[in-house]
Amino acid sequence: MDQQALLLARVAKGDKQALAALYNALERPVYRFILSRLNDPFESADVLHDVFIDVWRSAGAFEGRSKVQTWIFGIAYRKVIDLHRKRGRLQVTDDIPEQTDDGPDAEACLIAGQEAAHVRYCLDTLKDNQRIAITLAFYEDMTYGEIAEVQGVPEGTVKTRVFHAKKLLLRCLSSRVSRTVPA
């Protein structure tokens, strides 16, 4: 059993120190993930708080079939989705808009990919599920299996989401550079 699983087992028995240790280990990545979805530091702090309250209350329900980090990201994911649902901001479909299949300019992608503002802008153009899959892959270095667990979908669905997300992301980055470089 890894360190985080041991901590969670102690949390399930009501050990607050173990909860604090787990919080210290995962607070930043979980907060970063939530913030990347909400773009509001105060709201994100509230959701982070709710996530760890859920960890405290339901630690006993953890079955050990996944990593603790994946389980906690799953809680955060569902909270973000619920919040978006309440506000009617959720795009839940995996529909892919029809687009011409002109491949992105690799060099333009590379240039734009170095600019955080461009990357952030292009990530925001993706659908929620696509953006979350890419975010978890690039921010948290999760495997597609882990992302499938967080999102509660089959691995094939994650691969499809990532495939389209990557395509749209690179196309967007390519166009960002084309627009900013004078002809």
């Binding site: 992105p104 690799a106 992608c109 590379l110 990919g113 170095q114 600019e115 955080a116 990357v119 975010t135 892959a137 690039f138 921010y139 990557k166 992301l169 690179l170 980055l173």
Partner: peptide
């Protein structure tokens, strides 16, 4: 290579 750059930027 482009994806690795995007990841590093993020």
């Amino acid at each position: 290579h482009a994806l690795q750059t995007v990841r590093a930027t993020l």
